[in-house]
Write a protein that binds this DNA or RNA. Structure first.
Lengths: 237, 237
DNA sequence: GCGACCGTTCGACCGCCGTCGAAGCGGTCC
DNA sequence: GGACCGCTTCGACGGCGGTCGAACGGTCGC
């Protein structure tokens, strides 16, 4: 009787359809403002605020205030896994739920984050750049007016001389003033992935090479047959 | 709005503490009668019945009537995964919840089912016996008065001549009338594991050899150092 | 067959929680 | 600094759902 964690508290949070809508809207790792989530759930701003407060208190979402907006995002990969487990148990629309499940997994693998790559692929590329000595520590500055993209930004990266050469070689042309390295803490992987001009340039180049394809309407990114081989060769991914 | 599975319905089921207690009591794969679950949840029989009805309708548990008792069990491994995901998210007692988590995983690996082995280990042994040709199809009969031990019992096994020899050789002595093969559908693996006299004999022999140890008060079974090597050699497990 | 027992259904009570509009707080833009 | 805007808090309303005891259908034991 006393020894169990109150798992029911978590269940109660997921017992409301509006809250579930909010969580599902956040399931691909985006950070969305409260107003957007209210619209997504089809509910008034005050009601949404109540829901978000409970989700926050329950540890399912975290909030990051940016200017007068407050961006919410899922608190971690655990929440994504929980959602996945619940979708697997929700029977009513077997086909839809299956498609949703695979879609979520695809997003976890590779997706866009604004104009650059995120997900396992984005993290793998970042990791390779660091491991290969193309990207090292530095003292770059992050523009505080940017929308929130991750949890902590306490590490600074900078392209090494080899990194600059590699960018040229790979076909990513950056204006001299735009070589500052920015990055996000990837939500699904909880590791860094490259953003900023370099991240955008690499994604653009990957598309140009035909290695990956961006979905027209959502944030999914699919790896082509040629891309599979090229990515493995270039990034070991 | 319309395309989502009503995941909230599942959440609502898990939003009640009594229901969670019931599910956790069932988490190790046992089938328990309604009265026991009522006591486990600390609630009256009528209330428990209501909860069980909802859980059943929601597809989280299945029921099997046996005489005047009705045995409930979790509907499948999905439910176990869901519970695990929720425990990971329930923060209040970090230490306890962690211990619970590892305990559940240990049970999933190896546990007793009445007097024989279940879990991954039990399934692996059964699979090896079949693969090695020691156990084949037959026409054995199952006693319908036994408590429910699995979902379907439509396959009949029988020890082959080689199987009989192997049992002798391994040190399992069975009375001539007790060689009928019984099995259960393992809940966590959804495959068969050996029960009946042979299953009990094998477990007893494994304990005698010092390969596994049964926990004094619960159903956990731990593999010893010697057992790890012996099991690998004997069953490829 | 008749009592004992297990389980479900019914009816009534109670409490909790989601909902919204209005008001309050803080930050931005001109 | 003033007006606007995003978000949260407050108060009041309404409904859904958990709870129990009592009554009912089934099954086992003698």
């Amino acid at each position: 009787m006393p020894g169990d964690a109150d798992i029911a508290a978590v269940g109660a949070l997921l017992g409301d359809e509006r809250r579930c809508r909010i969580l599902l809207a956040l399931d691909d790792g985006r950070a969305l403002p409260a107003s957007r989530l209210a619209a997504e759930a089809g509910v008034s701003a005050s009601t949404a605020s109540t829901h978000l407060g409970k989700l926050r208190e329950g540890g399912l979402v975290t909030v990051q205030t940016h200017g007068r907006h407050r961006f919410y995002r899922l608190a971690g990969p655990h929440v994504g896994r929980l959602l996945e487990a619940m979708v697997a148990l929700a029977p009513p629309r077997p086909v839809t739920s299956l498609r949703e499940g695979t879609r979520a997994r695809a997003l976890r693998r590779a997706r866009t984050c604004y104009d650059h790559l995120a997900g396992e692929l984005g993290v793998a590329i970042m990791r390779h750049l660091v491991d290969a000595g193309l990207l090292g520590g530095g003292d770059g500055r992050r523009d505080p007016a940017d929308p929130p993209v991750g949890f902590g930004h306490d590490v600074d990266y900078r392209f090494t001389a080899e990194g600059d050469a590699w960018l040229d070689d790979f076909g990513v042309r950056l204006a001299p003033g735009r070589r500052a390295v920015r990055y996000c803490v990837d939500w699904t992987e909880q590791e860094h992935h490259l953003s900023g001009a370099a991240g955008a340039g690499i994604l653009a180049r990957l598309v140009e090479l035909g290695w990956v394809r961006r979905a027209p309407k959502d944030r999914a990114v699919t790896v082509t047959e040629a891309g599979r081989e090229g990515l493995a060769r270039t990034f070991g991914a």
